[in-house]
Amino acid sequence: MSPQAKKQENKILILATETCAYPGADSVGQAHSTYPSNTYILRVRAPVLFPESFYFDCFKKGISGIIVMSCGEECPYEGAFTAMAKKLDGVYKKMKEMELDLKRLRLTAICTVCNRSFLNEVNQMDKLVRELGPPQFKK
């Protein structure tokens, strides 16, 4: 019998687009390449869906790092990538104000077979959140 689950620190949320990055993560699985288990991949159609507040809420709820894995310029929704990137600029600005380390939020393009980039991103973020610990809010 498995012992009682432990509360996990330093969770990383990954927003992965269903056409590129999510199958990319599956491809990493197919290769049986291990990566830290504090990663939670949400399948999204286009990350433009998320308002700036979503990211702060996540940090407030206790998520330590967020990686937006998009299709980049290959985004099937015309204009969505640029709109989303612009939104993230706003998020960064506010993160600065809130004195949150900007590295906690990463925007990257991952394709369906980008195993190496995926692992790089995840491992880097894991290293980072282990160093930084959970986000601290001034207020």
């Binding site: 290959e74 394709c111 369906t112």
Partner: peptide, 12 residues
């Protein structure tokens, strides 16, 4: 000439 990833556009 788009430099799309071949897998990404073939798999669908």
């Amino acid at each position: 000439p788009t430099l799309d990833c071949a897998s990404c556009i073939t798999t669908p």
